[in-house]
């Protein structure tokens, strides 16, 4: 089941999505991290962040709405308190990085480059750009490219860029990131969403709006993955509502090279294990020798 994302080699295509596994050790008792292909950390920013006002979570039909607000310990505490433990995990470690200016992204990566001890970056470009009125970096090709360009010159480690689906033209952002040297693209982050409590007539989330994940977004994310794989050659990592082996395999057939599991872990921490077993079983039953053989084998009707 080995997969390659640029120079990054994973023992299997299953990655734990950013935000679900904290800094690696929180889930140590419930998930055997030695089985997964990679762990993406919670998004790290230069300075610690407390996060948004509660409530930060709401369940909606088949979906999880969150507005955590990038709560994280900041780079200094990450390096001194968490990196050593992460380093010792028997899996690929991908550090998710965020920032509010291009300079912040760059400074964070430089600090991390000095210490090392991890395998790749996932660049979270769904962060508000404070110098552009809070518009997300990921929302225009130019701003997304600016972040990738700044980081590409600072590191030789693989750069995975996590795209936001909240754009009208995701291929243009994907192409911009590819041309600046991204090694892989994660498609994608959560969908903007909102829930209302009718009794109080208030938004359920303290931050009013949030991001939707879980089975509710799978079909929408599938279309985004399809649009991206149809427009770039860079490997795509699918991330959106994967709960079963079937979900993951559908994304692979559409063209994803790897996939991430997030919210499904909250339902059942054995989800990663059962997804991997299900994929092995599917391949055996269909006489497929490797996951790579299935990638991009979507049969389109002839026109």
């Amino acid at each position: 089941m080995t997969v390659h994302l640029g120079s990054l080699r994973l023992r299997n295509p299953l990655m734990l999505a950013s935000g679900v596994a904290g800094y690696g050790h929180e889930l140590g008792d419930v998930i055997d991290l030695g089985r997964v292909g990679a762990v993406v950390t919670k998004t790290l920013t230069l300075k610690p962040r407390q996060g948004n006002a509660p409530p930060r979570l709401a369940e909606v039909p088949s979906g999880l709405l969150n507005s955590i607000g990038l709560a994280n310990v900041g780079s200094r505490a990450f390096i001194s308190e968490h990196l050593d433990r992460l380093r010792n995990l028997d899996t690929r470690i991908i550090v998710s990085v965020g920032g509010f200016t291009v300079a912040e992204y760059a400074k964070l990566v430089l600090e991390l480059e000095e210490v090392g001890g991890f395998d790749a970056y996932e660049v979270n470009i769904s962060c508000p750009n404070v110098k552009a009125g809070g518009v997300n970096f990921g929302s225009t090709p130019g701003k997304a490219a600016g972040v990738v360009r700044a980081l590409r010159s600072k590191t030789g480690r693989p750069l995975i860029v996590k795209l936001t689906p909240n754009v009208t033209d995701i291929p243009s952002v994907a192409v911009a990131c590819e041309s600046e040297g991204a090694d892989a693209l994660t498609v994608g982050n959560t969908f903007r969403a909102m829930a209302v409590d009718l009794d109080s007539r208030r938004p359920v989330l303290g931050a009013t709006g949030g991001g939707l994940s879980g089975p509710a977004i799978k079909a929408m994310c599938m279309a985004k993955v399809w649009e991206v794989v149809s427009s770039v050659r860079t490997p795509v990592i699918a991330c959106g509502g994967i709960c079963s082996a079937g979900d993951a395999l559908e994304y692979i057939v559409v063209g994803a090279a790897a996939f991430q599991v997030g919210s499904a872990c909250f339902r059942d921490f054995r989800a990663p294990e059962s997804i991997l077993e299900g994929i092995t079983e599917f391949c055996r039953r269909k006489g497929v020798r490797s996951v790579a053989e299935l990638r991009g084998t979507l049969e389109l009707p002839r026109t």
Binding site: E26, D29, V30, K42, E59, I68, A71
Partner: peptide, 23 residues
């Protein structure tokens, strides 16, 4: 009480504001 995601401290979903600031 709080709405929870993981129950293990990973998702940061069940934050409550502290009297001393922060969550």
């Amino acid at each position: 009480e709080a709405r929870m995601g993981c129950g293990l401290g990973a998702c940061q979903g069940c934050a409550v504001r502290k009297s001393s600031g922060g969550f």
